[in-house]
């Protein structure tokens, strides 16, 4: 135990939502953390549950000093839970876990070991997965797309469990649903990302029931795309798309114009005319929105920090 890295305190932040069997979860977590033989704390964040969950949490916390319970007043989602947990956490290593994804708490030491080996950010990769077939396929498609967009090879970005050092999280700004992209944002800052397989427990899962959630995933892809590539230069993206649309629209209109001039027929009733106009409008609109984006970035450039310093010599 000479390595100071291996003695640093671990804060495990677990987001608790309604319907979780608190007793067994906490029991397994404590068992798994004890096996590490390092100082730790367990922070259970109750995301404004209304059933008996909180009373169970209170009971658990009274028995064990290393467990802290935070209750959020309104449902704040994962970002809120993580932020609240981080505010109370005192460890230099942070493990975050969403209790809903039902990964085996025994896997947490595996994540910690990878951190000790030198990784900056370890994403749990649920394997084998035990939730529904549809969920798995949607997840596969999503991760494939995300991997294509970014340079990282992901199997399970949304796994809801990761371990990292405190300072990494301090460098990342996240809010709202962005919490799902913390691994990506960390990678973008140049931190070394690794994946670690972690077992998923069988049992009841939250299912994606609504088309709304799949829509959300699609929009997430756009978020990833924009965040990782164009967040400092929106016009490179919007301008490109805008010019392509406008040029196609223009080409259509010119074609129709020539068609009419040569006397090949009437064009007034042709849907193509409307299509061309539509594309032109969209194109012009995109360009103007891109310019607004540029102005936003430029006028707020004081807060733009797009680099991450690893080391300074002769400071």
């Amino acid at each position: 135990m000479a390595d100071p890295k291996k003695r640093s305190k671990i804060s495990v932040i677990v987001m608790i939502s309604p319907g979780i069997s608190v007793d067994s979860l906490v029991h397994e977590l404590m068992d798994s953390l004890h096996s590490l033989r390092r100082p730790f704390e367990l922070i259970l964040v109750d995301d404004a549950t209304t059933d008996s969950t909180f009373s169970m949490l209170r009971r658990v916390a009274q028995k064990e000093k290393r467990i802290r319970v935070i209750r959020l007043r309104t449902r704040s989602g994962e970002a809120g839970a993580l932020e609240a947990g981080l505010r109370c956490a005192s460890g230099s290593v942070v493990v975050y876990m969403n209790a809903q994804v039902r990964v085996n708490p025994k896997g947490i030491p595996l994540l910690i070991h990878r951190l000790d080996e030198g990784a900056d950010f370890v994403i749990g990769y649920r394997f084998p997965r035990r939730d529904s077939f549809l969920n798995r396929w949607v997840s596969f498609g999503f991760n494939w797309l995300v991997s294509r967009i970014t340079q990282f090879r992901f199997h399970d970005v949304h796994s809801g469990i990761f371990a990292t050092r405190r300072e990494v999280l301090n460098h990342i700004r996240f809010y709202g649903d962005m919490v799902h992209f913390i691994p990506l944002l960390a990678g973008q800052q140049g931190y070394q990302l690794v994946e670690q397989k972690i077992e998923q427990l069988p049992g009841k899962f939250r299912q994606s029931k609504y088309p709304k959630e799949y829509m959300q995933r699609l929009l997430d892809i756009l978020t990833v795309f924009f965040l990782t590539r164009y967040s400092k230069k929106p016009i490179h993206f919007m301008g490109f798309v805008g010019i392509v649309f406008a040029l196609v629209g223009l080409a259509i209109e010119i074609y129709l114009f020539i068609y009419r001039i040569l006397g090949l027929g009437a064009i007034a009733g042709r849907p193509l005319l409307l299509l061309g106009a539509l594309l032109l409008v969209i194109g012009i609109q995109m360009i103007s929105i891109g310019l607004i984006g540029e102005m936003i970035i430029f006028t707020h450039a004081d807060t733009v920090k797009e680099y991450n310093i690893e080391e300074i010599i002769n400071e």
């Binding site: 800052q189 140049g190 931190y191 797009e306 680099y307 991450n308 310093i309 690893e310 080391e311 300074i312 010599i313 002769n314 400071e315």
Partner: peptide, 10 residues
């Protein structure tokens, strides 16, 4: 001579 190393190619 001061050296600053960035974490990746930014």
């Amino acid at each position: 001579f001061r050296v600053i190393r960035l974490r990746r190619n930014f």
